[in-house]
């Protein structure tokens, strides 16, 4: 089965655990070992430091690596500190960037329409999937984001095992929400999810370099679901989302 990782990170973080792979070569070696064909990657500097510099670093880092596709971190264009929609579209098109990652909590901005209308309007118009970690907009905030921007496909990553009671009603109410499988480890979680919401809403990801790629792959491989469902989760859903992007 082919795996395509919908969310991994490159670059050296400010603080990292012993043994954590942070060099791109190490990430690629792990991907090869776990049969992960390709990955969407963002850069740690864009996430923890200067967003635009980090996005540029990412492009340089993966320029000669066909397995890795760029994911840019994005901010509202307040005070012109990030690209406005038209410039963002041109830059993404020029550099083959098809997804964005936001971090409203870490970047300290509102995710409500009064603050994010321009960026989310662009994402909806160009069908650019927007990723964020669950911790960036937990609980009811997740619902608010999905509800405020119904035409944007959101992929949330880095969930945890004890969130089903929060996630279920949002999945019921918001068809534009997709769940990254990395760290979604409730017992028989994928099986239950497929039963209630279908495999179409799950997107394989590892959360490399902090998450375990082998655990992420095994979670899907050993799930008690059909081969077709596994294929959708492992690569089909993210490939479909990426195929719909119109820049």
């Amino acid at each position: 089965m082919r795996f395509f990782d919908a969310s991994c990170r490159l670059g050296r973080p400010a603080a990292f655990g012993e043994g954590m792979p942070w060099q791109t070569d190490e990430i690629l070696e792990i991907m090869a070992r776990c049969h992960i064909d390709g990955a969407l990657a963002y850069h740690i500097v864009a996430r923890e430091g200067e967003t635009q510099d980090g996005n540029e670093l990412l492009l340089r880092e993966i320029a000669q690596i066909p397995q890795l596709q760029p994911q840019w971190c994005a901010l509202p264009a307040t005070y012109d500190e990030f690209l406005h929609a038209d410039a963002l579209r041109d830059a993404m098109k020029e550099n083959g960037v098809r997804t964005l990652r936001i971090a409203p909590k870490s970047f300290a901005h509102s995710a409500r329409p009064y603050a994010m209308k321009e960026l989310m309007g662009f994402a909806a118009e160009c069908r650019v999937p927007v990723f964020f970690d669950y911790g960036e907009a937990p609980c009811d905030e997740l619902y608010e984001i999905c509800h405020d921007y119904p035409d944007v496909s959101f992929v949330i990553t880095n969930t945890a095992y004890a969130l089903n009671r929060w996630l279920g009603p949002v999945l019921d109410a918001c068809g534009n929400l997709y769940l990254g499988t990395g760290n979604y480890v409730p017992h028989r979680g994928l099986e239950t999810f497929c039963k209630y919401y279908a495999a179409d809403r799950l997107v394989f990801n590892t959360n490399l370099p902090t998450g375990s790629a082998t655990a992420a792959v095994s979670l899907v491989c050993f799930a008690d679901i059909s081969k077709e469902e596994k294929e959708l989760i492992a690569h089909g859903n993210i490939e479909r989302l990426l195929g719909e992007v119109r820049l």
């Binding site: 009811d140 619902y143 004890a162 969130l163 009671r165 009603p169 949002v170 019921d172 109410a173």
Partner: peptide, 11 residues
Amino acid sequence: THGYSLKPYAL
């Protein structure tokens, strides 16, 4: 304690 939302979309 049980970890769920009280908002109308959920309840």
